[in-house]
Write a protein that binds this DNA or RNA. Structure first.
Lengths: 246, 246
DNA sequence: AGTCCCAATTGATCTGGGTCAAGGTTAGTC
DNA sequence: GACTAACCTTGACCCAGATCAATTGGGACT
């Protein structure tokens, strides 16, 4: 087991505090947030919560990667969200989880018990305002993904997924992106397939094809080098730099 | 032309006022909202705004149907949102429109100039809270649609679309839904295809198939009778009553 | 080193929905 | 009431990606 040391996660690295609250929080509010804050850890593969179950907290991902998935009775499953560090989980004002949340790597989450958080939100307007902006961003991401699912070819889908992960990685480290990028895939081929509305065989074939064509290099199954981000974005079918944070 | 009479649209039928604000607004806020409120009308087929253009207002649909679409350079287009009466358009805090907005029927929108609305939102916390809830609902709808796009067959996709339209119609009229439902499709076959990630030919074929199998009855091209909503939901592949407002 | 296990790759074949093409329907216009 | 222009339906054929079925590879245990 390889869980990060909780004690090393100080307040400044808590995304809620940092991203949703800090910028405009006064001292009292920060004390109040600390009082209801705690951490949870999950191992790779562990289910955080099942759709429909009561979710007594809201929170955000501090480290690791989790997924939101929906499943039909016959087993077909579709990933509807990818939770990377700083992403928010849970819905204020609703008790049941809407989706399955699964940790795909070891995950640390910064959580707030739901009721006190809602109370604080009631009293502290800019928290709702901040959550509104975050939710609008997620809505944009979901809609961007609808284009991927509805209209792109398998090859374009793979390239789109790789682009998104690179983009998120980069904005997290707030390092600019050169043409050459190296990163680790936090997803299995099956999880990629669930995200892309494909089968894992098709994912594998298209990964091989992108490798054969020099768009990516693979070391092992997960470690990826992208020699040219421009080329990758072309393969994704995105216009020149569509939303890309350079 | 057949635009509704603007003067007949009084404050109580304005969804922003009614849904986003009214419940908790005091008299001053209502006066302030009235001061920045105005109406816009669009004809069927007219583009409300192009992706990327400056959008000086936010607002909500009072009557009619509009669509949000994304387009790739080669012309592939995907609808990412269906705007029915009471739906909100525009993003506070952002100037450019993210998507093409097109009226598919004659549309009346209740609009607020962006800057004054943002100012009011700043001063009036429950507006942001109300918008947060509305945005979270939209996010859920977008994610539900990701399952449709990624994992459902053409027949299931059509049935899902019909279900959604029926559901929204019903919640609008807040009449309960019996088994037997009659309604008018507000979309062309092409618009349906753009929503579902299909071609218009496939939409047409599947509509014919659902008709042949007695799941729907068609009078003309748009007027639809659903003899059994239960059957339709089965065809959509939804679990028993998935979110269905009965 | 061997073996177990799971993730990933690769091949062969099949099929749902796309593509291309030819009518049919309906509403609006003169 | 014929003319036109959208919009829709239907048919024939094809292909991208699904399905079914072996292998292969790599890390964690003895």
């Amino acid at each position: 087991m390889n869980t990060p040391n909780i004690n090393s996660v100080n307040c400044n690295s808590c995304p809620i505090r940092h991203r949703a609250v800090c910028a405009r929080c006064n001292a009292d509010e920060l004390v109040e947030l600390d009082a209801i804050k705690y951490y949870r850890t999950y191992e790779a593969g562990q289910t955080v919560i099942w759709a429909g179950d009561i979710m007594g907290f809201v929170g955000s991902v501090v480290s690791g990667v989790a997924t939101l998935t929906q499943t039909m009775e016959d087993g077909r499953t579709q990933m509807v969200g990818l939770l990377l560090p700083s992403d928010f989980v849970g819905r204020p004002g609703r008790d049941g989880a809407a989706y399955n949340v699964v940790a795909t790597t070891n995950v640390v989450m910064c959580c707030f018990r739901k009721k006190p958080f809602e109370d604080l939100m009631e009293r502290t307007p800019h928290i709702a305002q901040r959550l509104l902006v975050m939710t609008l961003d997620e809505l944009d991401a979901a809609r961007e993904w609808m284009l991927v699912l509805g209209r792109k070819t398998a090859r374009e889908k793979i390239a789109s997924l790789l682009s998104i992960i690179v983009r998120r990685d980069a904005s997290l480290q707030s390092t600019g992106l050169g043409e050459n990028v190296v990163f680790d895939l936090p997803l299995t081929r099956e999880a990629m397939a669930d995200y892309l509305g494909l089968t894992l065989e098709t994912v594998s074939r298209q990964m091989s094809a992108l490798k054969r064509d020099g768009v990516i290099k693979l070391e092992g199954k997960r470690h990826i080098t992208v020699p040219s981000m421009g080329r990758l974005l072309e393969e994704a079918g995105d216009d020149s730099d569509g939303g890309f944070i350079g």
